[in-house]
Nucleic acid binder design. Structure first.
Lengths: 215, 215
DNA sequence: ATAGTTACCGGAAGAGCATTCCACTTCCGT
DNA sequence: ACGGAAGTGGAATGCTCTTCCGGTAACTAT
């Protein structure tokens, strides 16, 4: 994961923001950036163990900062949830080029798809919060596709070019199909869903040799 | 997903001693029953205006009782939510025979379907809480079908017998279809969904004269 | 009808969490 | 090294949930 993480503001980092209204080219101080990282890391851990409604102090303690610092960077709880998800999306999307560089195209693709499935599977509570109708999360689905579609597209392209994968696969469809497999599942069905995803990936291979399979 | 028809029997009368458990349903005192009614009515109102997370005191005040009384009858918040929903389901289901007695079969059917659609449409937040994975609500879907399927079945039967409605309609399918129309909608799309339901109901009529319409 | 026996009511008290505020600390440019 | 500004931490405040118990009103036996 690269250093992204604007807190609530959604700005900062490298871009000076030409479109921004004379706003904040001010770079974040080093300790502030460090604390934000700690908070996001702690929040991710606490969210998975104690749920998204965990006490703020628990997150602050785990990050080794005061609650004031938490509220400074994430005035609303939804800001924290949003940033955690964005960071996870980034981490997963950034893994695509890395895998492409270190594996055969076919292996890179399947590895990444499992990584993606893992991400989708491990966030049932976050996904619920996300679809709760809270307008604070409206931008997340867009970010999701914006990051994942190009990432998968390049992997697919490489695998197709090397002849390991058939050519009639649409990235968005595949992402959506895998995500759908996990929707109805609770905590138990994860293994089942993993098997289904494996089947799906095998299906990708099939067409490469046999031309076109059934629907 | 497979809905389970869980037995929703579970009455509030838990026999205390093994000595005389039979025949002592321990009737509720009159004022207690009155307060429970007030609480359910108030909870319904507050849930729709302030959401399911509204303060307990707000509900107690609106019901004209103390918070102690609320917690006596509904120790858990989910108990209150569950009871409110059951009461609404009951009210809607009980409206079916009443409509059948006071209207032509066709009118009774369409009136009831609109009533049902209204119920489904007005409870997005409650529905969310219901699907939140909390096992406290596991029995509710079963109760839903158990009450509504027979209610609609009798209305459909009468309307079919009088020739106003075609015969190839399955009660459960129709209930599910109407409920589905409201799923993706937020607060704005209610009007749209209502139009779709109207269309659906018109479709029921169509087949009665012309045989079989498009899907 | 009356007195006795409960079940039940109501709100005050205790505990926990979210959020704010500001004196103090740490960083960065000069 | 120094001064100013950005950033920090945690005490303080207010709100809410939940429990508890003295008082009250409803049933019951006579």
């Amino acid at each position: 994961m690269t250093e992204n993480t604007a807190a609530a503001g959604a700005d900062s980092t490298t871009s000076a923001g030409p479109g921004a209204p004379a706003g904040t080219p001010r770079r974040l101080r080093a300790d502030a950036q460090r604390n934000i990282d700690s908070l996001l890391q702690a929040a991710k851990a606490v969210f998975t163990t104690s749920g998204v409604d965990a006490p703020a102090k628990e997150i602050a303690d785990q990050a080794g900062v005061g609650v004031g610092t938490l509220y400074r960077h994430f005035p609303q709880r939804s800001d924290l949830v949003k940033s955690v998800l964005q960071r996870e999306i980034d981490a997963c999307a950034d893994a695509a080029p890395a895998l492409a560089a270190s594996h055969e195209p076919g292996a890179a693709l399947t590895n990444w798809l499992h990584r993606y499935a893992e991400l989708v599977a491990s966030k049932p509570r976050l996904a619920k919060a996300l679809h709760s109708g809270d307008p604070a999360f409206d931008e997340l689905p867009g970010y999701f596709w914006q990051r994942f579609e190009p990432a998968l597209a390049s992997l697919l392209e490489a695998a197709t070019a090397s002849g390991e994968i058939r050519a009639d696969i649409n990235p968005k469809d595949l992402l959506y199909a895998i995500a759908s497999l996990f929707v109805p599942m609770g905590d138990d069905g994860v293994a089942y869903s993993q098997r289904m995803v494996g089947l799906l990936i095998d299906g990708l291979r099939y067409g490469a040799e046999a031309g076109q399979s059934r629907c």
